[in-house]
Design a protein around this nucleic acid. Sequence first.
DNA 1: GTTTTGTGTCATATA
DNA 2: GATATATGACACAAA
Length: 466
Amino acid sequence: MAIMELQAMEVNSTSPNATPNTVNSTDGTSESNTPGNFELSTGATPVNQDVSLHQASLPSCSQDFPQMFSPQLGSVTTTPRTLMPRISSSNSSNINSTFGTTNLTGLFLPSPINSSATNLTSTPILPDPFSTLLEESMLDEISLLDLAMEEGFSQAQASQLEDELDSDSGLSLDSSHSPASPSSSETSCSSAASSSSTSATFSEEGAVGYSTDSEVATAETEEGAVGGHQPGYSKLCRMSYQDPSQFHGLPQLDDISHNHTYNLPLSSAFSEHPDLPVPSGKKTAREKQHSKLQPHADLLDKHASRDERRARAMKIPFSNDKIINLPVEEFNELLAKHHLSEAQLALIRDIRRRGKNKLAAQNCRKRKLDTIIKLEQGVQELRRDKARLLKEKMEFIRSIRQTKQKMQSLYQEVFTQLRDEEGRPYPPSEYSLQYSADGSVLIMPRSMAAAEQNRKPEKKQKDKKK
DNA sequence: GTTTTGTGTCATATA
DNA sequence: GATATATGACACAAA
């Protein structure tokens, strides 16, 4: 509103001799006593309320309220009058209640009608800031709706979405359906699992799979390829390393104090879990033969890691657990204590390297999943913000539209109550209310207002050149 | 038989 | 320089 007043003042300053009937309220002339007087603004701030304005218009008013300039109204009287009674802004109680102390007189003036009384156009004589804002809002609304359609949700949907999101009752992420996203429980425990993994005690490796390694091919040939994971066991292990607390009721797993329980020796696992289904990996003929000959050793081997089998084949005198998890100093002491061949030392170093890397890979994957989940949460949050802002924008547009309609109604009410000296109403097709920067409102012929409007662009162009 | 998923391993970079 | 850790890429097994 302040901006509009400033703009209106600028208009006034460029055309000081605006209208013959403009009288500043501060001079207390008799204009306020004429029958056509209409008080618009609050009496609390009489100063700056009565400056003439004859350029203002509200272009869209005539569009939105064509009945205002209906033929019936226009035909009430057609006598042109040069008299333009000033509308004082000092004594209107009706309007005061609506506008308070703020001068809004310029906001609800309709666009002047082009000289023809029957040709009621919406062409603005002067771009009204508020009207411009409204028009922009309308355009924005259209584009907004387009955007909303583009985004796949309507205003109602946005509101609904907002309500749902505000409730924050539950974050519904697609992550649970995403192949890269584990369940929430998995996620929630993975970080803790990662952090504790390196310091945790380490069980013997139970991972199986690879069967080709040139380093210890001889050892491998004794063992043959080992079938892969056992589904039930695999799931159990995965859950346990996700959240060991889930297994308080499973004393057999209490000794798993870290998050890499898939390294739990399967031999012990199966001995303590007779219910677990027997692994059904693919067996080669050689394996089957070996299995027949040494059933117990086969079971052990089957669930030992490749490195464990290698270590056993190379007769390494300590566990892979120690090899992998001892600190460097203790590890070196351990090596020094035993007399080991070069091949054994090389294997031990490989086992240590692979074991550590295996843990690192597991942690790395958990971190990657955590990152993905956090990013997905960020996306959801941004979507929520976007929906909220969209809803706010629509509410603002709605509010602006209501204000505009209210002002148009007030304009109509004011205009229809205006009377000339003879008590006749002014035809809206020929007259319009104009406002000035200081708040005074006057009624002037539309032709005059149109002339002012034509003069204005020229001046603006001059200003531009300057 | 193909695709997806989980895992181990290697190579490489970085601390 | 040795060691530990992180990570992309690959291969493999199982579902």
